[in-house]
């Protein structure tokens, strides 16, 4: 009961923050609001007992992402230039897509249903055998690092690739943007 009330409050705050970001024309304020949005998301994840995800959301969403947004704003400017006009076709398209998504939710299993494929396929094996096979108390770590080590390797590669991508686009410094390949005079 208490959790339900907390969830409702958090979800309301989430919607309010999203609307505030949408209304905000000052990009600095909008960036701060996205940080708050991430923090509320992290609180929701804690309510769902997903502390590892909440931790990541708080560190990445509220921490690093905010700083990177601010870094971008320092390059581009703090005020949104164009006034937004309401476009009827876009509004229609968004409403239809949103409606379809909500319609699609009806097919999803109930929250916490034990008989869904997610719960019945491999989770049981992980929960039963992790303690003897891996011997690491945190089940999330044993799944991420060992059972799903290949996926985590892929994720790390993605992060590395993203860093390289940003380096290619911005990393040379603004003095010599033209030559990406002449390494020596960088």
């Amino acid at each position: 009961m208490t959790v339900t009330v907390i969830n409702i409050i958090l979800l309301c705050l989430l919607v309010i923050t999203a609307l505030a970001i949408n209304k905000q024309r000052n990009l600095f304020a909008a960036t701060m609001l996205t940080g708050i949005y991430s923090l509320i998301c992290a609180s929701l994840f804690v309510c769902l007992d997903a502390v590892d995800v909440a931790f990541t959301e708080a560190a990445v969403g509220a921490g690093i992402a905010t700083i990177l947004f601010l870094g971008t704003l320092a390059l581009t400017g703090f005020e949104e230039k164009t006034r937004v006009k309401i476009s009827i076709p876009a509004l229609l398209l968004v409403s239809i897509t949103g409606g379809l998504l909500i319609y699609g939710i009806q097919d999803m299993p109930a929250f916490g249903d034990a008989n869904t494929p997610v719960q019945t396929y491999l989770s049981g094996k992980y929960i039963d055998e992790s303690a003897t096979e891996i011997g690491v108390p945190n089940l999330v770590t044993s799944v991420l690092a060992s059972y799903r080590g290949y996926d985590t390797f892929g994720e790390t590669t993605v992060i590395f690739t993203a860093g390289i991508g940003v380096l290619m686009l911005l990393g040379r410094g603004r003095k010599n943007r033209k030559g990406l390949l002449d390494e020596d005079d960088a």
Partner: peptide, 8 residues
């Protein structure tokens, strides 16, 4: 790296 890229 990202911070350097945006801030340098």
């Amino acid at each position: 790296i990202l911070f350097y890229a945006f801030a340098s």
